[in-house]
Computed example of a mutant assay.
Amino acid sequence: MPKRLIKVTPSKLGTWADCPRRFRMAYLDRPTPARGGPWAHSTLGAVVHNALKALFDLPQRARSADAAAGLVRTHWKDDGFADAAQAAEHRDRAAGWVHDYVAELDVAHEPVGLERWVSAPVGSLVAEGRVDRIDQRGDEVVIVDYKTGRHGLTTDDARGSQALALYVLAARRTLRRPCTKVELHHLPTGTVAAWEHTEESLARHLRRAEESAEEFQLATDTLRAGGDGDVLFPANPGRQCSWCDFRRSCADGQAAGPALEPWAMLSS
Rank of each mutant, 00 (worst) to 15 (best):
P2D: 12
L5E: 05
K7E: 12
V8A: 04
T9Q: 09
T9Y: 10
S11A: 13
S11M: 07
T15A: 10
F23P: 01
A26I: 00
L28E: 12
R30K: 15
R30P: 00
P31D: 07
P31R: 03
P31V: 05
T32H: 09
P33L: 08
R35A: 12
G37N: 09
G37M: 10
G37Q: 10
W39P: 00
A40N: 07
T43I: 05
L44K: 13
G45M: 07
V47K: 02
L52V: 06
A54K: 12
F56H: 14
D57R: 14
D57E: 15
P59L: 11
A65C: 06
A68W: 10
G70T: 08
V72R: 01
V72N: 02
H75E: 11
W76R: 03
W76P: 01
D78N: 14
F81W: 06
A82Y: 09
D83L: 11
H90F: 15
R91W: 03
D92I: 03
R93F: 02
A95V: 10
A95E: 07
V98T: 05
Y101S: 04
E104H: 14
E104S: 13
A108W: 08
A108M: 02
A108C: 05
H109G: 00
V112M: 12
G113I: 07
L114A: 01
E115W: 09
W117L: 15
P121I: 07
V122L: 07
V122D: 02
G123K: 03
S124T: 12
V126H: 04
A127P: 00
E128H: 04
R130C: 13
R130P: 00
D132S: 06
D132G: 05
R133A: 12
R137L: 15
V142M: 02
I143H: 04
D145R: 08
G149R: 01
A158G: 10
S161H: 09
S161G: 09
Q162L: 15
Q162N: 13
V168R: 02
A171H: 09
A171F: 10
T174E: 15
L175N: 05
P178A: 04
C179P: 07
K181C: 11
E183R: 14
L184Q: 02
T189C: 01
V192P: 04
V192I: 15
A194Q: 13
W195K: 00
W195D: 07
A203F: 03
A203G: 06
R208W: 03
A209V: 07
A213G: 06
E214H: 12
T220V: 08
D221N: 12
D228C: 03
G229T: 01
D230E: 15
A235K: 03
G238H: 07
Q240D: 11
W243Y: 15
F246C: 04
G253M: 03
Q254W: 02
A255M: 01
A256Y: 05
P258W: 05
S267M: 13
